[in-house]
């Protein structure tokens, strides 16, 4: 009943407001583009290898994990390094988006205080930059998959969809935390701690089926559990994620993005005064 009322409210009461706001953000797409470019290029600008580092980082990460988990601690999961990396790279995107995105409004205080633009732009740009990083990291993963005995299967066609769902979940959380951080500066550090625990509540290093089923069900409350298992299904097990998983992901993407955004818009009015 409540859900229906909420849907009604969203559909009829705030629809126009939302559409106007989306239009305005779309007007500022060039700003998103330049901020993403600034973040991606600016970070490696002074280094000799430059942008190549966005590829080299995941490359070495995988290389080290492969070495550790095949030579030093052989794991019971077959091709464990592939299992680990297909979960770890999407997680890295999520945790970086949240960990660094939470501070975007505060760290861009000068801009926020002095210039008008839809404030979401800052957060969207920050999350998008991390998303692009993940896409580049996937190039490296594909190279490793090709050389591993696993190869790919046609299931890979579903990958973009899962990525987009993950993007919206991450965006929702980041919008929420970046708005809260303006009012409560500790939030940035709390998010750091939260992420430390969160990684263990997500089946990245272990297999969810090896857990007690009760705990397994509890873990399903964590949106990232579904995300990571969808990646595992597609890239590691070569099977289609169940329809139920995909619908749940779609709903999570919509709900988290809307809630995060709603709270952001609600708090945004006083940003310039609070900063």
């Amino acid at each position: 009943m409540h859900v229906i009322l909420l849907c009604y409210y969203i559909c009829f009461e705030v629809k126009d407001k939302m559409i106007n706001r989306v239009k305005e953000i779309y007007e500022y797409r060039d700003m998103i583009y330049s901020l993403v470019k600034r973040e991606l290029r600016g970070r490696y600008q002074k280094s000799v290898l430059g942008m190549l580092w966005t590829l080299l980082n995941p490359f070495f990460q995988i290389l080290i994990y492969t070495f550790v988990f095949t030579v030093i601690f052989p794991s019971s999961i077959e091709n464990y390094y592939i299992y680990l990396m297909t979960g770890m790279i999407p997680w890295t995107f999520f945790s970086e988006a949240l960990g660094q995105g939470a501070g975007t409004i505060v760290s861009n205080a000068d801009m926020t205080k002095k210039i008008y633009f839809p404030r979401e732009v800052l957060t969207i740009a920050s999350v998008t930059a991390k998303f692009v990083n993940m896409l580049l990291a996937f190039v490296v993963i594909f190279v490793f998959l090709l050389t591993s005995p696993l190869k790919f299967s046609y299931h890979i066609l579903l990958l973009p969809l899962v990525m987009i769902f993950e993007y919206f979940i991450a965006l929702g959380f980041t919008l929420f935390f970046s708005a809260i951080t303006v009012y409560l500066r500790d939030m940035e550090y709390i998010v750091g701690v939260l992420l430390m625990a969160w990684i263990w509540a997500t089946p990245i290093m272990y297999d969810i089926s090896s857990l007690d089923p009760v705990i397994g069900h509890i873990l399903l409350l964590n949106p990232m559990t579904l995300v990571v298992s969808a990646y595992h299904n597609i890239l590691y097990y070569h099977c289609v994620p169940t329809l139920w998983t995909m619908t749940a992901l779609l709903l999570e993407g919509i709900v988290f993005a809307l809630i995060g955004w709603g709270i952001f818009v609600h708090l945004e009015g006083n940003f310039a005064e609070e900063l």
């Binding site: 060039d30 583009y33 330049s34 210039i115």
Partner: peptide, 10 residues
């Protein structure tokens, strides 16, 4: 970058 923040298209 600066111009895009003022809302000017590339």
């Amino acid at each position: 970058i600066n111009a895009s923040i003022f809302g000017i298209k590339a």
